[in-house]
Amino acid sequence: MKVLVFHIGADRYGLPLRQVRRVLPSLELKGIPLAPDSVAGLMNLHGTPLPVIDLSRISGRAPSRQHYDTRIVVADYIAPNGTVHALGLMAERVQGVQDVAPQNLAPSGVQAAPFLGQVAGDAHGMVQLVEVNDLLPAELRARLFPAELATG
């Protein structure tokens, strides 16, 4: 499977490419007062407002630094009820697409953040998969997608 490799801190993580819609440069985000810390702001995707989650922040780290390779990845978030939402993910040092052989994937064996999945080793170290659908805790999901709450 192919993953989009990015970094949280010094470690490499991979977003499954099938859930990535596109990669965008780091845009000017609109701030959202009183929003949770992990919400970097609101972006405008062709006229549609899109909440952006800071992957560094949601992992309990300092906010992402604005490097040239800090990107906003527009991913498909599939809510538990099956609804697909576009969700902006701010990621540091987005390196590119890497192919991870399914046989190399192994469970991490450590119960940590709920969105962290299997790990795969390669020549440069280990890449841990990030499950987009598990990124948002229920409360945050409710805040970001209140319509779903109303419907669900």
């Binding site: 192919k2 989009l4 490419l17 990535v20 819609r21 596109r22 990669v23 990107r71 697409v97």
Partner: peptide
Amino acid sequence: NILSLNAAIEAEK
């Protein structure tokens, strides 16, 4: 870079 990334994504899809 971004273009290539998106191209890679599109190619994958």
